[in-house]
């Protein structure tokens, strides 16, 4: 390839991004961009019709993802991406609906929506970027902050028990649950691709470094250091019991695909149940995808 051509070649991810909004706001060394790259790659591999994929985010650093991805995209209020996604999915069931948000959004302020969307088995994929703190607002303690980690509102270290998100997801009814670190690029991509091909409530947690706040406050080095650190501290255990996945401060991270099962979705259940009870009077609702 001539030098000239190489310079003119566009990175393939440009097709998935709103290039008129780049550069993005994320800090150098942040893991969110890596997860977005995996998402774009997974979308491409999934061969889904991109007109039929919608993405929603809440508030926070990861909450900005919806603004950069060139799909039908809604940047909602804090914690409410999931109920907005529920309405969107039910109004137009042919959509593949993805919620891409942070740990504060999904497990903190939106925790109630999370467990109920999982309970209903809403056909929604959640990609949750977990950086162990509220980063956009300056590094406050979160529902995921490990015990002893320092945060701006836990200046003497956190003493509250954190959520183990895969455990919460499975206990609430999710049909696909996985956890990776941001450096597991191929594995994250594969998980997203698998989940995009499934129907039901899928949950993928990606542990990422927050360089500017969590790492600096806890003196954990720069983004690359922490990215590598998480990667090296992780141990792949597919099918691990989700009750054993607690994360301790700078401790071992169990990663892998923990749950992958089939269960009728909210709309499947609605159509089947009401069809059975009401017979011919019932007006079946929604368009159906064939499960892969």
């Amino acid at each position: 390839m001539k030098e000239e051509d190489r310079l003119q070649e566009r990175p393939p991810i440009e097709d998935f991004l709103r290039m008129d909004r780049i550069p993005h706001i994320w800090c150098p060394g942040c893991g969110i961009g890596t997860v977005v790259t995996s998402f774009a790659e997974a979308l491409k591999k999934s061969e889904l019709d991109l007109d039929k994929v919608a993405i929603l985010s809440g508030i926070g650093c990861t909450g900005r993802v919806a603004g950069y991805v060139k799909l039908d995209s809604i940047h909602t209020t804090h914690g409410r991406a999931l109920p907005v996604a529920t309405g969107l999915k039910l109004a137009n069931p042919e959509l593949k609906v993805v919620v891409f948000s942070g740990d504060g959004d999904i497990a903190g302020i939106g925790g109630n929506h999370f467990i109920h969307a999982a309970r209903r088995n809403m056909d929604i994929l959640i990609i949750c970027v977990n950086n162990f703190n509220y980063a956009m607002t300056g590094g406050q303690v979160a529902a995921t902050t490990p015990i002893d980690a320092n945060a701006s509102t836990a200046p003497y270290g956190n003493f509250e028990y954190p959520f183990s998100l895969p455990y919460l997801a499975e206990a609430s009814g999710a049909t696909y649950v996985a956890r990776w670190t941001a450096l597991h690029l191929r594995r994250v991509t594969k998980s997203i691709q698998e989940a995009l091909g499934k129907r039901g409530f899928s949950f993928i947690e990606v542990i990422t470094p927050c360089v500017t706040l969590y790492a600096r406050r806890n003196r954990l080095g720069d983004g690359l250091n922490l990215l590598k650190y998480y990667y090296e501290k992780s141990e792949i255990q597919h099918g691990a019991d989700t009750r054993t996945l607690d994360i301790s401060y700078q401790g071992k991270l169990i990663v892998g695909k923990f749950v992958d099962k089939e269960k009728p979705t909210f709309l499947d259940c609605m159509n089947e149940h009401l069809g059975k009870v009401l017979g011919d009077k019932y007006q079946p609702y929604g368009v159906y995808h064939d499960g892969d």
């Binding site: 809604i74 109920p83 969107l88 109004a91 109630n112 929506h113």
Partner: peptide, 17 residues
């Protein structure tokens, strides 16, 4: 829905659907 926060949120999603 699980609460009124979610109810109105779902309406916004449905309208854009």
């Amino acid at each position: 829905m699980e609460d009124e926060l979610a109810s109105i949120a779902a309406l916004i999603g449905a309208a854009w659907g």
